[in-house]
Design a protein around this nucleic acid. Structure first.
Lengths: 154, 154
DNA sequence: TTATTAAAAGATAAAAAGGTCTTTTAATAA
DNA sequence: TTATTAAAAGACCTTTTTATCTTTTAATAA
């Protein structure tokens, strides 16, 4: 549904939202280590997010990535759109070209409410609101395995 | 969420369910044309489904693919498991390694009910029941564009 | 103004997904 | 028993995704 690239982009942008501002810029290396993402890959993603005006950057000593006030008003769907495009998120679950409420695939009426739900969440909250919601719960998003387990989580 | 391979496998197995039986076997070519899937690719998938005992085959004149009585008792989740494995369907929507109800990602409580829903549908109906439900509604699943449109369907 | 720092850019490469083609094997009908 | 049919097997190819490495550019601090 989402590519790894999108997932990395979301997690690291939310990291920026919580830990950076115009005065406190953050290097790729720091973020990559903290959320456990390959850093050269993240560097590439960040270039693209900068071009898409989702995040900001400056070079040189004390340079790095950060969110400007304008950036903070973007939402998670902007990130997904910038990296994957929105088509990946739309489209029939079984791949049918013609699948809608008058001609639904067998899982259409299970999938559509879910999509509307998650789309609303990704579109209606700003990145800051999203990050705040996470911080308020005391959570910290990382791909690290704090307590490695062999089973896939549900 | 599902690979193309899984989607093709589901659609073509459901096609077999409706159109084949031990006496009436169907060639890859016929199915590929009917549901609009690349036929050499489908041939590969079918080899794997035969090895996984999801469908049956016989060679030679009047040979082809079909569902045995045992095959008909399999469910859609068996197809997905055989092609993609089940991990692709499980796993956190944002890719977090540790995401559960005590330590949920921001969309956990939107994603989990959906997954339970669709998993139940894929697991609790046999392939025949699934196919019958579709046929009863008068539907026919294909990837063909009957009336080509430029917009991605929702 | 020079050394240093960190991103930008772009070339390269490995892995996975998606797809094609050719040869071999097995079944069966003539 | 031979020709024919259709799957099985496996080699091969292409594209996309994921990832790495090297060089260049810009900012800044000494």
């Amino acid at each position: 549904m989402l590519s790894n690239a999108s997932k990395y982009a979301i997690l690291s942008t939310l990291y920026l939202a919580e830990h950076s501002n115009e005065e406190r810029k953050i290097s790729v290396k720091e973020i990559a280590e903290n959320i456990d993402v390959p850093s050269p890959f993240l560097a590439k993603l960040f270039q693209q997010l900068v071009r898409g005006k989702i995040i900001s950057s400056s070079k040189g000593p004390h340079g790095g990535f950060y969110l400007s006030e304008k950036n903070k008003q973007k939402n998670v769907l902007d990130i997904i759109d910038n990296i994957d495009g929105l088509n990946k998120l739309n489209g029939c679950f079984l791949g049918l070209n013609e699948c809608d409420s008058t001609n639904p695939c067998p899982v259409h009426f299970i999938v559509v409410p879910f999509k509307n739900n998650i789309l609303a969440k990704f579109r209606d909250l700003t990145i800051m609101e999203f990050a705040k919601e996470i911080a308020d719960k005391g959570d910290f998003l990382t791909l690290k395995n704090v307590s490695p387990s062999l089973e896939a989580p549900i």
